[in-house]
């Protein structure tokens, strides 16, 4: 009997082991190593030299890092305004329209296109000499604009392409949330003389709260992680003016060979992302534990 029990446990672990080993060896051990490296001065070739918290202190003194951090905050704020609020507005207006499905597909086609392809498409849109946007402006006799060179315009240009790509996710999630609100509730409010705006603020928006939390947490975490789009469109330039934390980490590590410093930046980035999603993850796991 005891032997049988042991056998069962052994087989159970055997089933879990491929997934467990792949994740632990290729993701979790590297993560801890990365934290370890962040306390060293290391160029990737010679022996790492321990330097305590110097990398972290250097981060907060670095002027470039400050610009990168400011840009990251700009990304966060803009993401909340355009892809998130825009996604909500589109969802609210789309719902129940005749061509709802057609409109919906238009907004989520960009999601299937990679960030790299999105970046290349928008490079063409923004190109100074042959770009689509400047050609349109020319029709109205407006002078050419250097969308990706002027600071801070370049960050806003990047953010517009980001919105183009991202608005569909939020729209779909909000549509899902809206479809779970019973129609009687909004109808009752309308009968009692509330206008559409009042119904939205007092009935619909409060009931959307769970999905709004999810959307905001995901959008915040994603805007901290953004890399591909910036890499393809501006490489963080000119002169690091459009860098965000993920881009700065990449440049310090793989262009400048400051491995220890790059590791420290990635730790700071991870702490921020996890702090944002911590509450949400906790509530999800709590709900998850109810299965047991």
């Amino acid at each position: 009997m005891k032997k049988n029990n042991f056998m069962n446990n052994f087989i159970s672990y055997l089933f879990i082991s491929p997934a467990f080993l792949l994740v632990v060896i290729l993701l979790l051990i590297p993560m801890f190593q990365n934290v370890y490296y962040s306390f060293f001065n290391w160029d990737g070739i010679s022996m790492p030299v321990f330097n305590g918290f110097k990398n972290y202190i250097a981060i907060f003194r670095d002027v470039d890092f400050r610009i990168s951090f400011q840009n990251t905050l700009l990304w966060v704020a803009f993401t909340l305004i355009f892809p998130v609020m825009g996604g909500l507005l589109i969802a609210v207006f789309l719902r129940g329209l005749k061509f709802e499905n057609f409109f919906k597909s238009i907004f989520y086609i960009p999601l299937t296109i990679s960030f790299v392809a999105t970046g290349i498409m928008w490079n063409y849109m923004y190109s100074r000499e042959i770009g689509v946007i400047n050609s349109i402006l020319e029709l109205f006799r407006i002078d050419k604009v250097s969308w990706l060179v002027n600071v801070p315009l370049n960050t806003f240009s990047l953010l517009i392409s980001w919105t183009w790509q991202q608005i569909g996710v939020n729209m779909v999630l909000f549509l899902m949330g809206l479809s779970s609100i019973p129609a009687e509730q909004t109808e009752a409010a309308m009968i009692e003389g509330a206008n559409r705006w009042q119904t939205f603020i007092h009935i619909i928006f409060p009931m959307l709260r769970p999905i709004t939390t999810v959307v905001i947490v995901m959008a915040l975490a994603n805007s901290f992680k953004v890399f591909d789009l910036i890499y393809v469109m501006t490489r963080g330039g000119p002169y690091r003016s459009s860098e965000t934390l993920a881009m700065t980490m990449f440049r310090e590590t793989f262009t400048m060979s400051n491995m220890g410093y790059g590791a420290a930046i990635s730790v700071v980035l991870s702490v921020i992302v996890i702090a944002i999603s911590a509450g949400y993850i906790k509530s999800m796991l709590k709900k998850d534990l109810l299965y047991y």
Binding site: G262, I265, V273
Partner: peptide, 22 residues
């Protein structure tokens, strides 16, 4: 459940944290 949490925790971190050690 612990094993699940350990494996699932792989989705939490930004990819940048894996790059140098990998």
């Amino acid at each position: 459940f612990l094993l699940f949490i350990i494996i699932y925790s792989g989705t939490l971190f930004p990819f940048q944290i894996y790059l140098i050690p990998l």
